[in-house]
Structure formats: C-alpha cells, structure tokens
Computed example of a mutant assay.
Amino acid sequence: MLTLENVVAGYGSTTIVQGISLEVSSGSCGVLVGPNGHGKTTLLRAISGLLKVRSGSVTFDGADITKLRAEKIVERGLIHIPQGDLVFPDMTVAENLQLGAFTRTAAKRAKRRLEEVYDIFPRLLEREHQRSRTLSGGERRMLALGRGMMGDAKLMMIDEPSLGLAPVIIDEVYRQIRRLIDSGLTVLLVEENFGRAQELASQMHLIENGSVVKSGAPAEILDDRTVRETYLGVAE
C-alpha cells in the first residue's frame, strides 16, 4: 500500500529524515517507534505532502505521489491525523465529520462513511450535536480519527494518538484504533511507547537520528538486547 525509497526531508537548511526506506502492506499496521525529535513526525509530513521530499520517492497504492500537493494525496485516500486535538472547536461533532468528506470522491460516500464512523465510535453519535470544545480529550481524539475516516481513507497515518491523555483514555483510543484496523483500514502509526506500539503493530520500524535502524515484527524488535537496554531501560 505504501513504499518509501530513500526519502530525505527537512526544514530550511536542516535535513531531518536521512534516506528512509520502508513498506506498509495493505490491511496491516506499521508503527514508527523511537525517541522524540528523531524524525517520525517529519516523515509523516513528507509522505502527506505537507513537507517537500528533497530526494527519494513515495509510492501509494501503486502510484508515485512524491511530488503531489497535499490535497491531491488526500483525494487518493491517504489521510494524515496529526498530533493533538486539531478539530474545529466551535463546530459540532457532526459538522467536523462532514468536513472530512470535502473531496468529490469522499462526498459521494459520505452517508455510508458516517454510518461506519458512528458504528466504530458510538460516543460520537451520542455527542453529534455538541460543539467540539465541550468534548473530553479522548473524545476529540476519536473525532479526529472519525473525520479521517470520512475522507474515504485507504491508509491513515496517526501521529501519537496517546499524546497528553490519561492511561484509561489511552486504552479506549487504542481499542478504537484496533477496530479501524480490524475493519480493513491500513494504518501507519507513530508511537514512542513500545508497549503500546506492539499492541497494534504488524511491523515496527525503529527511527533514530532520521534513519531506520531496525525493522521487523514486534517480537523481533523487542527481543533485541540493545533495544531493551536503550529504549526500555531493561538492564541485562
């Protein structure tokens, strides 16, 4: 579904992503793990067209999207859910969801997609007429995910869904992401918490200093002594 070949990206004169190559298979969940500030968010921004790819290529669903504008990438079904609660606070839950179906293709399927969103996130149906500012942190995170679904997503990139949430709310958000994956959606997730990452991951990619230093199944990554000592604090 998604293939990166030697992707390089950054800001101004600073290069952050240092030639990353990886693949995410259709229907799977790939997870980017690693320390904060090492390029995971920058990589998502490059994939989604919010940041220019300096070199390398991004292929999505069989097409080269490296040089496409962000809105054209969204039209193809690659949806980016950034960090935080970036919903429109003075709009209702229903209005936020409707905005997710702004593309011509998504608009045609908006009614069916809305039913799917409310099936996966029943709490949003309960709150559909509330202004988004009145929602809890966990509910706003669910709303951001639901709005991404409304874009007729084939692949959803989710950047640190647990950021700033209480543990009990994180459990609920991760249950809902599991439902998205079980429904057949392909997911690329950024998560610093290795324990949380292994709950969902089909494949994990350890990012350090803008490069992939190790890729593999969760058990393979967590069985690495260096990973356990450096990132999990387990002395051996």
Rank of each mutant, 00 (worst) to 15 (best):
M1L: 08
L2M: 12
L4W: 04
E5G: 07
N6V: 09
V8N: 14
Y11I: 15
G12P: 00
T14E: 15
I16M: 05
G19E: 11
S21K: 02
E23P: 02
V24Q: 02
S26M: 11
S28L: 05
V31F: 06
L32H: 03
N36Y: 06
N36L: 06
G37C: 10
G37D: 11
G37N: 10
K40M: 12
T41R: 07
T41I: 08
T41V: 06
T41C: 06
L44S: 06
L44H: 02
L44C: 05
I47F: 12
V53S: 05
V53D: 14
R54K: 11
G56S: 05
D61S: 15
A63K: 11
D64Y: 09
I65L: 03
K67V: 09
R69Q: 09
A70Q: 09
E71H: 13
K72A: 15
E75M: 15
G77Y: 14
I79G: 02
I81C: 08
P82S: 08
P82E: 14
Q83W: 14
G84A: 15
F88V: 13
F88A: 10
D90L: 09
T92A: 12
T92I: 11
V93A: 12
A94E: 14
E95P: 08
N96V: 13
L99T: 12
T105L: 13
A106T: 14
K108A: 11
R109L: 09
K111I: 15
K111V: 12
R113Q: 14
R113F: 13
E116W: 10
Y118N: 08
D119A: 12
F121E: 08
P122F: 07
R123P: 03
R123W: 08
R123V: 13
L125Y: 11
E126M: 04
R127K: 06
E128Q: 15
H129N: 14
H129I: 07
Q130W: 10
S132R: 01
T134K: 14
S136R: 05
G137W: 10
G137H: 07
G138S: 09
E139W: 13
M142A: 10
L143S: 02
L143G: 01
A144I: 11
G146N: 03
G146F: 00
G151A: 11
G151Y: 01
A153V: 10
K154C: 05
L155T: 09
M156I: 15
M156P: 01
M157L: 14
M157Y: 04
M157Q: 03
I158Q: 06
D159E: 13
D159K: 00
D159I: 00
P161V: 15
P161M: 11
S162L: 05
S162P: 00
S162N: 05
A166C: 08
P167G: 07
P167C: 04
I170N: 04
D171W: 04
V173N: 01
Y174F: 08
R175L: 00
R175F: 01
I177D: 00
R178L: 13
R179F: 15
I181K: 15
T186F: 00
T186S: 00
L189C: 03
L189F: 02
V190T: 06
E192T: 12
N193M: 06
N193A: 04
Q198E: 12
E199F: 07
A201R: 01
S202A: 05
M204K: 03
M204G: 04
E208A: 10
V213E: 04
G216I: 01
A217T: 12
A219Y: 02
E220K: 02
E220F: 06
D224K: 02
R225M: 13
T226C: 00
T230L: 04
T230I: 13
Y231A: 10
E236R: 13
E236Q: 09
